[in-house]
Design a binder for these strands. Sequence first.
DNA 1: ACATATACGCTACAGTACGTCTCGTAACAG
DNA 2: CTGTTACGAGACGTACTGTAGCGTATATGT
Lengths: 212, 212
Amino acid sequence: MSKVDAKSGIGTAAAVAGRLAAPEHGLGRPRDERIDTDVVSAVLSVLRSKGYREVTIDGIARKVRRARTSLYRRWPSKRHLVAYAVVSEMGDNPAADTGSLRKDLEAAVETLLTAFAGPLGRALAGLVADMAQDSELAEIIRNEVLAARRKSMRDAFIRASARGEIKADINTELILDMLTGPFYYRVLFGHAPITRRMTQEVVEYVLRILAR
Amino acid sequence: MSKVDAKSGIGTAAAVAGRLAAPEHGLGRPRDERIDTDVVSAVLSVLRSKGYREVTIDGIARKVRRARTSLYRRWPSKRHLVAYAVVSEMGDNPAADTGSLRKDLEAAVETLLTAFAGPLGRALAGLVADMAQDSELAEIIRNEVLAARRKSMRDAFIRASARGEIKADINTELILDMLTGPFYYRVLFGHAPITRRMTQEVVEYVLRILAR
DNA sequence: ACATATACGCTACAGTACGTCTCGTAACAG
DNA sequence: CTGTTACGAGACGTACTGTAGCGTATATGT
């Protein structure tokens, strides 16, 4: 399987989520950008309505009335295509800084509530399965989707710590997992719903752990 | 350990993990039990070494030198076969009752540590993907794998509550998710390792939440 | 012994999706 | 006009799925 981008110095935009690079300048016929955008929104639409497994290269190509080969020119496989679509929509998330740890965390965690209500909610299980199969893809998702979210919460802890609000000697990474793990756990296994009340309670519980 | 038998009171044996029923009494040639056990251990072996996606009905049949049709006589699909294999191995877990909430929880959580080091660790992602696709399968996994684990922890909370050790007014289900969610989260996304130290810290943090 | 009933192995089949390849044609730069 | 690349269309080989039919093997019941 081909790598991501021949010249990914440090994650260039083209390298993100495994999209194949188009040649640098216009030499020869340029790529039709509408194909990219149409495909991505078709993927998101199918993800939202029917779920990961219903996304097929063939089906998407028919839906946007393009040749299958045009998709393979851009993404080496279905995994990469879906990853690209998801990353495109998730992008970055607002790193709230309200001065209150509680509010910062609540804001961060609520982005999970809304994200899981969208295409990502239905895509996640399939995506996770492909991540287990393709370490390159796993790296992309961790870096492009998870890392930004984790960083904004980590920063909130650092600010609170600087204000002297919380205990020292805390395993921040583990706290992050306890804060957000329950959401992933529930959305993937479906044993309990994800509610706004849940976001508040999780934050409340985490604050108790951190209280000095 | 295996809840596979022909005589489980509620929910017929056939329903458990989706194995197809053999006719009740020996009328005609009996099924060769070795096929069942060989197949299950072959599935677990492949899960452990190569992961979920490498498990195929065809491949397993070749590996145990049996006809594919013999597998289809027992399990309607790969999903059901894998679910059956996993449930057979996971079975029930020891519901510790040491008199100490901390020890009970540590014991319960450590079963996750070991479980995720085995075939389930590599199977989980694929299993989750199929659960998203097949609600019947999802029900089986939730009931046969998750429910028992959750119950034993829930019981530990109830005992501690009766001893007056912990706060009232606690959302037990959410606490369960905060206790175990981080393990699922890490094993599925691979952003951090699962260690014994982690099990102790998670329990420690949960106890802080519950402290009165 | 014989009939009945089921399991087994084998082969064939239709279906789906994947990813690769090759063409002729279209669109741009110099 | 030439070179270069993208597009659309189709064929191809591979892999696995799940179903069906058939002859053979192995049990039970009388």
